[in-house]
Design a protein around this nucleic acid. Structure first.
Lengths: 207, 207
DNA sequence: ATTATATATTGACTATAGTCAATGACTATA
DNA sequence: TATAGTCATTGACTATAGTCAATATATAAT
């Protein structure tokens, strides 16, 4: 049989996966991740439990798919945000605005529940979170551009590679986000991120 | 009835909890956290499942108790390590040694499995992890001492409070540890920690 | 000693994630 | 059209975390 062909059978399979995905999305938004069982998802979708596990390895897999989709959109948004700065803007200024933008996105646009699920999934490794933590994620490119610019402008130190600085900057944001999650709601992500990056930037700048 | 009185009844209760704790500890060390069920713990301990849930809120609670005990010992070790430096040692030198010490402790003495469980427990909040993340943890005091020393020596900036610098330094270590967990074994905790703190320290020092 | 009270213990029960052999539906081939 | 092969689908099943009303046992009060 031909592979990847679109026919009644494959179309139905795609439809089934879509039904599960969308039912889950609706239920999650309505009741929160912790209050939605796989049974309730498949019931709403009108399919069997077995089907669920054909299309998703685990419940977390489905959630992480939802997150990866969100992350993809977020990164596109980040990219266009970065491109909106006029050429010649100081990299350090861009970095601060960008950190603020990220903190807003994480805390408001994505929200605590989703971030918590993601950070849990990353640590338990019940599912592949390459789309979020992989070094090929668009975010690394976006950050890398800012750092390169800072070096070109003669503002940032040159004894560390762009790649290294980028990875450590993103790791710091991840650390801030983790701290935000474990201390929620007693941790102001934006405020603390700005303080933290002020120190970090200070350490990245030429003395 | 008197409260907190030691008698046959309370002694037996203490004994039961201890049996559960020790059976779990042995099984975890032998098979790893993920391969030990509550049923197997209570079977080994020779008590009922109901008893388990009298003494521990959840399975994670038991694990976190194990971790908190480890953390307590670790912090004592940190404290004595710090005190072993001769007076007058530069705070920045102490900080580097200390970061190296922490990385070693986390990666070797505690190990990936335990750290992973802890970081998962912190994020899921299925259990109280105050002993590890609370600002009254001894580690904060230990770090705080280093920072104070750096300020007194005129080496560290004075436009940030000791408390703020301390919290951000520990958050950075937590961020590094989280990154280590999610990228394990492809992330050298000690190496990356030293790079990261070099930048951070640079940002904390007076210009 | 008897009774009342407090509390330690139990194990059957529920809830829910995840499995898998069997079945059904569609497609390609002759 | 008949048949074989492929793949989507099913739902009963297992595994395991966590619950709770009932019971057993020790202690306090009379």
């Amino acid at each position: 049989m031909n592979k990847g062909k679109i026919n009644k059978k494959t179309a139905k399979a795609v439809e089934t996966k879509k039904k599960i995905y969308e039912s889950a999305d609706q239920l999650f938004k309505k009741h929160g991740f912790d209050n939605v069982s796989v049974d309730s998802i498949v019931e709403k979708a009108g399919v069997s439990k077995g089907s669920f596990y054909v299309y998703f390895d685990t419940k977390n897999d489905l959630i992480t798919t939802l997150i990866a989709d969100t992350v993809y959109k977020v990164d596109l948004d980040y990219k266009s945000y970065l491109e909106s700065f006029p050429p010649g803007t100081m990299a350090s200024d861009i970095l601060f605005s960008f950190v603020e933008k990220m903190a807003d996105t994480i805390a408001c646009a994505i929200g605590y529940d989703l971030m918590k699920m993601l950070y849990e999934a990353q640590i338990t490794r019940t599912v592949n979170t390459e789309a979020v933590m992989g070094y090929n994620r668009k975010l690394y490119q976006v950050f890398s551009n800012i750092i390169s610019q800072g070096i070109e402008q003669g503002d940032f130190r040159v004894d560390m590679s762009v790649d290294t600085i980028t990875k450590h900057c993103i790791m710091a944001m991840r650390g801030l986000t983790y701290e935000w999650c474990i201390r929620y709601p007693d941790f102001d992500l934006k405020e603390q991120s700005l303080i933290h990056y002020e120190v970090l930037l200070n350490g990245i700048k030429k003395q």
